[in-house]
Amino acid sequence: MKFLEFTPLDSINFFLDDLNLGESTIKGSLEAYSCKHTSMDRKLSFSLEHEILGYLSQSADSDPSSPLEYLSSRSSRRTLIYLVLTLGHMYPDYDFSAVQAHLFFREEEWDSFRQIFDTYLFEAAKEWSLLNDGSLLESMAKAIDEVIKLDECEVYSYNPDFEGDPSIEKGAIWSFNFFFYNRKLKRIVSFRCCCLSNLAIDGLPDEEILEEGEDDGLFINMDM
């Protein structure tokens, strides 16, 4: 996987890099990757493939209805491996298991992404509209389309449990990861975004942050 620089993504990334909304701060990033393997990726890809096939071999004897059974398709395994490799580039300090990561990936529709976006980036979208023409979602969709042809993409969400979420930082209120994969172009655009409590950023003890979160109905892992 190779990180790709695309100018259309810059304005979105600049806006969401450290967006202070008063009580909270949004941190978001759009990144593009080529699915062409580096030498390191080839080694890791082989290891992930071996892990998946080993698991399938074991589960076939014990649980024929395993949710991983569809990974007997080489194309499905390749897609999962591309997604896991992308995660590895996004979070280089985290060691991802293909079998475990698969449990947290889900194929989505654009409407699902739009619903998540409208719900959790509502305040950010209002800030964007004060500075730019057009909505934040429309601008993001246009930028992604220029890079990867949105109507040809498969959309995936990655929503791990709290302990397995590499994106969670101290004071996190919510976080999500989406991936737009174009098979023809062999290219992936990732969108990671999280919201941090400014109480945590300002150094408020964790116990008080938790109390604030309970009072305001805040949460860490959202239900996708």
Rank of each mutant, 00 (worst) to 15 (best):
M1Q: 04
K2L: 03
K2T: 00
F3M: 04
L4E: 03
P8V: 09
L9M: 02
D10S: 12
D10E: 05
D10Q: 03
S11M: 04
N13Q: 01
N13V: 02
F14G: 04
F15P: 07
D18K: 05
L21A: 05
L21I: 02
L21Q: 08
G22F: 10
E23W: 00
E23C: 01
E23N: 00
S24F: 10
T25P: 05
T25G: 11
I26K: 04
G28M: 11
G28E: 05
L30W: 01
A32V: 04
K36G: 06
K36A: 11
T38C: 00
S39M: 03
M40Q: 01
R42V: 02
S45M: 06
S47F: 02
S47T: 00
L48S: 00
E49M: 12
G54T: 00
L56V: 00
L56P: 00
S57Y: 06
S57G: 04
Q58H: 12
Q58R: 10
D63N: 13
P64I: 13
S65V: 11
S66P: 00
E69D: 14
S72W: 14
S73H: 14
S75M: 14
S76P: 02
T79L: 12
I81E: 14
I81Q: 14
Y82T: 10
V84A: 10
L87I: 09
L87D: 13
H89T: 04
D93P: 12
Y94P: 15
D95N: 15
D95A: 14
F96H: 02
F96Y: 05
A98G: 01
A101R: 03
L103W: 01
F105Q: 11
F105D: 13
R106A: 15
S112M: 10
F113W: 15
F113D: 13
F113I: 15
Q115G: 05
F117N: 10
T119W: 11
T119V: 07
L121Q: 13
F122Y: 15
E123N: 14
A124S: 15
A125P: 10
K126V: 09
L131H: 09
G134Q: 10
L137C: 07
S139C: 13
A141S: 13
K142T: 08
A143T: 09
A143Q: 12
A143F: 08
K149R: 02
D151S: 12
D151V: 09
C153Q: 06
V155A: 03
S157P: 03
Y158L: 08
N159H: 11
D161A: 06
G164N: 15
P166R: 15
S167T: 10
I173M: 08
N177G: 12
F178C: 09
F180I: 03
Y181E: 14
K186D: 12
K186C: 14
R187K: 12
V189L: 03
V189C: 09
F191A: 03
F191C: 02
C193H: 02
C194E: 01
C194D: 08
S197Q: 07
L204W: 07
L204V: 15
D206T: 11
E207L: 08
E208C: 00
L210F: 03
E211V: 05
E212I: 08
E212F: 10
G213M: 05
E214L: 10
D216W: 07
G217I: 09
M222P: 01
M224I: 04
